[in-house]
Design a protein around this nucleic acid. Structure first.
Lengths: 185, 185
DNA sequence: CACGTCGCTCAACAGATGTAGAGTGAAACC
DNA sequence: GGTTTCACTCTACATCTGTTGAGCGACGTG
């Protein structure tokens, strides 16, 4: 409705977006082992066009992987909601791309570490424990583990669990740790 | 001392073992993207010999990845000890190979799921909760998450934490869940 | 309507990869 | 000691990869 006849630049931008989406999907499925040709095929485009738009596979990968982490969230419950994906049963493509590659691509590893680090830091700020940093890291690492088990391993008991039930359980469970008094001499 | 002069078959078996170790190391570093040539180089051997011994990359990968999971362990604390690696700072090579590849290789995914499933089942058997299955899955998934964060992401707060401190903290933390009364209407 | 711009495809290359088969030299055996 | 076995290496091949540069044809402009 804004433009009945899309201009040339608009078309170009549109295919660029289509390529990026295809890349996120492919990286989310095959990790960093995804191929330019596979991405091009999915986008319905010639492989060389992919590079004309994004320069190199590396650059495209970096873009696909950093895409949706810049949003800032502050509280754990919201993080839980996102990552445990209460309503949807599938993670957003960029997140899938990042997590799928985080063990095989140093680039993705770095992005993931930074992300978790930030999350842990904001979480630790809400604790006054001496071991706050470690405990916060424990929490975010656990959430990551549950996400992996649920969305990538299809672990029975998580994959088939109802999203809201799961979120409630996890939240209740994670809430416990901070309040528990140390029971060690 | 058993044999001062190793026989031909013994030598062959020895190089086979050396190749397998090299494979675990390579798969543990590069995931399923590791190459036959890389494995051969690490073993100090011709690439084609690798295939003469193990048939195909697939077969070798399967072997490298299944290697040390057949050991049966029964209790969570021992599992924790293993996986959080109290004394050592590095996971055993086969475990590294499995975890590194579990997000990019369907084969490794399957092995990991089965493994976690078994662990969760034996853990769930010790609970009498209605949500036992889900809670047990939650626990094993969390342990996996912590292991990944510690050994693959080098997440600060976990990677630099002392092993025994960490194990104690995790154990105490995980112990809480089962005993906690439901605080939801 | 003619022309130039440019989004896109075609064709090609150099390198790496898994894998197969021939060849080689030393160990095992008679 | 001569011959055979066999653990191992060499060479080769087909395929797939990322990446490049030339070319084409439709769109926008005069």
């Amino acid at each position: 409705m804004t433009d009945q006849q899309p201009t040339r630049a608009q078309r170009r931008e549109a295919t660029a977006a289509r390529i990026l989406e295809a890349a996120q999907e492919e990286f989310g499925t095959h990790g960093d082992g995804a191929t330019i040709r596979g991405i091009a095929r999915r986008a319905g485009v010639d492989p060389s066009l992919v590079l004309q738009h994004y320069g190199s596979k590396q650059a495209l990968f970096a873009l696909a992987v950093r895409a949706d982490l810049d949003l800032d969230h502050d509280d754990v419950p919201r993080h839980l909601e996102e990552v445990l994906d209460v309503r949807l049963r599938e993670l957003p493509a960029p997140t899938r791309a990042l997590m799928r590659s985080m063990l095989t691509s140093p680039q993705a590893t770095e992005v993931m570490r930074t992300y978790l680090q930030e999350r842990a830091a904001t979480l630790a700020a809400t604790m006054d424990d001496e071991q706050a940093a470690t405990r916060a890291a424990l929490v975010v690492a656990s959430i990551m583990g549950v996400t992996i088990a649920r969305h990538f391993l299809d672990l029975p008991g998580l994959a088939d669990a109802d999203g809201s039930d799961l979120a409630e359980l996890v939240e209740r469970w994670l809430d416990l740790a901070p309040d528990r008094p140390t029971q060690v001499p």
